[in-house]
């Protein structure tokens, strides 16, 4: 349903879409049923000359069941939705599958800095690739992300991944994703962060392993120029 308009680009996007579909089906059914009953009653019991309204207190269990039964069924559906929603929530937010690589996302008023681990696959080494407003990842790899903020609250949102997580200054908030679709897509800041909140777009570039390796290689020499002594080990570490 959602993927008609927003492509489904991560390993868990389909699960979230499925929960949304389930809720749409259930609530849609109830919504239209309730509206139908409402309009039916309005038309059926419109004022008529000489017809007096019924006197119904609604306290008798026989009368009350007209309200009670829809009610029990609502509860049943609620429970079903809760289980569906929580199971997805646990996969996305409560478990961290083994990572192939970790990226660091640093948000500030009003830009993103993405720290890629570079050729050695590790953060906080001299070959880290820091890019503003562009995150490069490889399709099919599992990523952990570390979110940090330099000033106020921001929120890291990638609609095609169905991923969203607030960033809190003073903490490192962690999470994961696994891209399944190549291409360039929007990254949004979804928590109001001041007057530049609307001009804080970034892009995520999901690449094939080959393209990504080329990108890493292209950016590594500039890094290496700063720290030449590290260069051989890094290149050796390339797959």
């Amino acid at each position: 349903m959602i993927d008609t308009y927003v492509p489904n680009g991560s390993s868990f996007a389909g699960d979230i879409d499925h929960v949304i579909l389930v809720i749409t089906a259930i609530t849609g059914f109830w919504f239209f049923l309730a509206e139908a009953v409402l309009f039916y009653l309005i038309i059926k019991y419109g004022e008529q000359e000489g017809v007096r309204a019924k006197y119904v207190a609604g306290e008798d269990p026989k009368e009350k069941r007209w309200v009670a039964w829809p009610h029990y069924i609502t509860l049943l559906f609620d429970i079903y939705i809760i289980f569906a929603a929580i199971s997805v929530w646990q996969d996305v937010k409560q478990t961290m599958p083994q990572a192939d690589e970790t990226v660091r996302v640093i948000a500030q008023q009003w830009a993103w800095t993405f720290v890629h681990p570079g050729a050695d696959g590790k953060l906080d080494t001299p070959d880290d690739i820091r890019v503003v407003d562009e995150l490069h990842v490889v399709k099919g790899k599992t990523y952990h992300f570390e979110l940090q903020s330099r000033d106020v609250l921001h929120s890291f949102s990638i609609p095609i991944f169905r991923l969203k997580q607030d960033i809190i200054p003073g903490r490192t908030v962690r999470g994961w994703f696994k891209p399944t679709l190549t291409g360039g897509y929007d990254i949004q800041c979804t928590e109001i962060c001041g007057i530049g909140h609307g001009i804080m777009p970034a892009r995520i570039i999901v690449e094939t392993p080959e393209d990504h390796a080329a990108w890493v290689l292209a950016l590594t020499p500039t890094q290496a120029a700063i720290t030449p002594s590290e260069q051989p080990t890094q290149l050796g570490g390339m797959p």
Partner: peptide, 30 residues
């Protein structure tokens, strides 16, 4: 008064999407 019931129903059922944690990941702040 009748419009209240008819319109509020839609407000009510769409709340389920947001109360369900799994779906809220996508819909939050949209």
């Amino acid at each position: 008064a009748l419009a209240f019931i008819a319109e509020f129903l839609l407000g009510g059922v769409t709340g389920i999407f947001l109360g369900a944690s799994g779906a809220d990941i996508y819909f939050h702040d949209t």
